[in-house]
Computed example of a mutant assay.
Amino acid sequence: MLGLEYFNFEQVWNLVYLAVMLLILAGYFLLVGPLSEKLGEGQSVSVGRKVLFVTGMMLLYLAQGGPIDLLGHMMFSFHMLSMALSYLIAPPLLMLGIPLWAWRAIIQFLAKSPLRRLKFLVKPIVAAVLFNGLFSFYHIPVIHDYVMLNFGIHRAYYLILFITSGFMWWTLVNPLPEAAEVQGLKKMGYIFLNMVLLTPACGLIIFAGEPLYATYNDPVVWVKAMGYCIPGDTTYLLSQFGGPQFFGYLEPAIDQQVGGILMKFLQEIIFASMLAYVFYQWYRQENWEGDDEDIVSAPRSELPSGKLN
């Protein structure tokens, strides 16, 4: 099981993080259940939205508090899988799982609060550059190792990445018609921009000729970083396993390349799928509008029966 059998249940499954996630889920079902009659004026929430939200929470827990998080401290490929789940897959699922009336209430609240001054952070170009820039900056080797060894900064940085990923995704999955600022070709350009901005960081990782991160290569640094997942003194890991290579199914340099390829591959699949969907919607809209113009301009005698009904 990739080395998970050497750790106990509480080390593999972070129970504190699990409790927090369950509380959030309880709050969500309270919001879309009993409270929806008061706050949502009786608007029901579809099963599909609930499934999306629960799925997003499950993936986020696995990536940040479950076995993928632990494996991500031992193998770089799992670290990048955790990154993809946390910032490319879970956020849109969670956002789509929130009912429209809740989004409108959130936007109205933010519009009246001091946070309205930060509205520019949701602007497409700013959001794309901010998230991808922070992600790329984090994977500079010296920055990555520093963050991994300073747990307070680690938590804060991951939270900021999650928030900025939400800013980035807002332009793509924004469910409110009245708040949609980017459509059609502009949205396709925005998707392409995000695909390009992440390429340099992934390229650095994939084509590096040697292991870059001490967290996955230096046993002493690795033992300190494992303190994020395992409470208490982690020095016993050094005498018991010798280092992260004990768990690695690949050589460190190859594991690093696999991680970079995995991240880029998942990003390409996700954004290429969205690009195809947005193109299809734009094509349908353009052809629908073209049909309407033909109907309006055509002589009555040329119109097929039923067109005016």
Rank of each mutant, 00 (worst) to 15 (best):
A84V: 11
I269Q: 13
Y280K: 04
M226C: 14
T171V: 12
K123D: 15
P304N: 12
Y28D: 00
Y213I: 06
F162Y: 00
P114T: 04
V47C: 00
P231T: 04
V196D: 09
I230G: 09
F192C: 02
I261Y: 06
I106P: 01
L193D: 02
V223M: 13
S86P: 00
C229S: 11
L62F: 09
R49I: 00
L88S: 05
K186P: 08
L85M: 13
L31V: 10
F109N: 12
G3A: 09
L250R: 03
F247W: 14
Y158F: 15
Y158Q: 15
G248P: 05
P231I: 04
L198R: 01
K119F: 09
L70A: 14
E302I: 04
Y61E: 01
G243E: 10
T215D: 08
L262R: 05
S86F: 00
P92Q: 05
V16C: 02
K224G: 01
V220I: 12
L212P: 03
L94R: 03
M226N: 14
I125R: 12
Y228N: 15
L85F: 06
P175W: 00
V129P: 02
L59S: 03
G27A: 06
A19L: 14
N150T: 10
D255R: 02
F271D: 05
P141F: 08
K123I: 14
M195H: 01
L22T: 05
V20K: 11
L149Q: 15
V258L: 06
M74H: 10
Y236N: 03
I270E: 08
L93M: 11
F207D: 08
A253N: 11
L130A: 12
P67F: 14
L185T: 12
W282K: 05
H144P: 01
V258M: 04
L96G: 15
L96Y: 10
P244Q: 14
A272V: 03
Q183G: 11
T164K: 09
L22A: 13
Q256I: 07
I295C: 08
A201H: 02
M195E: 09
L134H: 05
S113I: 03
I107M: 13
V32H: 01
Y216F: 15
T235Y: 11
L96C: 14
C229T: 05
S36I: 03
E268C: 03
W222H: 15
Y87G: 00
S113K: 07
I143E: 09
V223A: 13
A208E: 06
L266C: 10
L22E: 09
S305P: 04
A84R: 06
E181T: 11
T55G: 02
A63Q: 01
G209M: 02
F241H: 09
V278F: 15
A179R: 14
Y158V: 06
I254F: 15
Y280G: 04
G3R: 11
M274P: 02
S46G: 07
V126E: 13
G152E: 12
V122Y: 08
F247P: 08
I269P: 01
F192S: 04
G152Q: 10
G248D: 15
Q256N: 10
D294M: 10
G48H: 01
